[in-house]
Design a protein around this nucleic acid. Sequence first.
DNA 1: AGAGAAATTATACGATCATATAATTTCTCT
DNA 2: AGAGAAATTATATGATCGTATAATTTCTCT
Lengths: 204, 204
Amino acid sequence: MRAGFRREAPEDRRRQLAEAALRCIVRHGNAGVSARQIAMEAGVTQGLITHHFGEINELVAHAFDMMSDGMLDTVMTAVDSALPEPKARLEAFVENSFSPALFDRDVLGVWVVFWGLILHSPRMSASQKGEYTAYVVTVEKLITDYAEAEGCAIASPRLAAIGFTALMDGLWLAWCLNPEAFQPEEGIRIGKNWIEGLRLGAFA
Amino acid sequence: MRAGFRREAPEDRRRQLAEAALRCIVRHGNAGVSARQIAMEAGVTQGLITHHFGEINELVAHAFDMMSDGMLDTVMTAVDSALPEPKARLEAFVENSFSPALFDRDVLGVWVVFWGLILHSPRMSASQKGEYTAYVVTVEKLITDYAEAEGCAIASPRLAAIGFTALMDGLWLAWCLNPEAFQPEEGIRIGKNWIEGLRLGAFA
DNA sequence: AGAGAAATTATACGATCATATAATTTCTCT
DNA sequence: AGAGAAATTATATGATCGTATAATTTCTCT
């Protein structure tokens, strides 16, 4: 006897499959990017991936977009619930970037897989360009608001935002690869020191 | 008729295989980590990998150690051929980190594969800990020399070195993933702005 | 109720994977 | 020169890979 199955709306199924893919990637890294494994994790058969995504790379790209949007939302929701002063918002950004929800080896593990794909897949690269731009623009706004409130000059807010983003990503990477390297609180301290450099005019 | 083969010293063969592995990883990313592909690239048969390394992960770890040492050597050789003043040395470090030899998509592609393995393999993680520590210690020396020469206070040279390293790695990552994001010269500018923040007392 | 569309399963195919084992070749040493 | 050790090849095995195709089930709509 054949087992029955539930029929679901395409958007729901696509989300379920993407979430299953993320769990597989967390568990096995690059080796987790496998149509068979993902389908089993989602409790469906492999054919469903072909049906909804065509090729598996499209499924992974969808998971990337979902996760990318989710992470920026998470940190910005926290920023928006902080005090409205620009300094408080910028510091909330730092503190939340180092919160356990994001400063997490499993999360980085997923991103490392994405990075590898971005370098070799035009489809993934296209997604990344959009996500990165959105991220930097958001950071730039936080920085210019802060600079205006503190009355400090910034020659290129864009470069400051790129640098600050790079610092946060680099700390995330370094800590996840080797959590013994420094404490999360030390990461927050480094981020705030960077802000202090900005205030002192390092980017003027 | 069987093709003849040359017999080589184990160290030579191990190096050849590691170099072939790096070329395969550059070409195909994670998919390049394959005993068959690497053996073919090196012009030998797969059995040789088993013979010299046992399992393929050990070969990749060997390639990681080789490349890691080589990159630090490359940049420090350039630093040592700069003017002896601490400021010139630190700036030479920045400028050389953004030179085409290191600021390169192919190079990052190899590292992304390594990062993925570090997160899932104790063997690779052990190598990474050592390489990272060596890197940060080197950077810390450059920074403390600079701080002494400029007469600026640094509360924790270790944290400053971790932050500076993270900034450079983050810029490397961001640019390689999306070379349109900023120009290499802009990366140098960001690095030097960080140094200026240090001088102004952001880390005091 | 029942027909048609779409979601889902079932199955098959050829390629590639890592690794083990045994046969063979090369080189060194005496 | 020739024997032995080690490097290397040759070959086999079973697992997993992505994807295509056809059969089947579910659900909606009239």
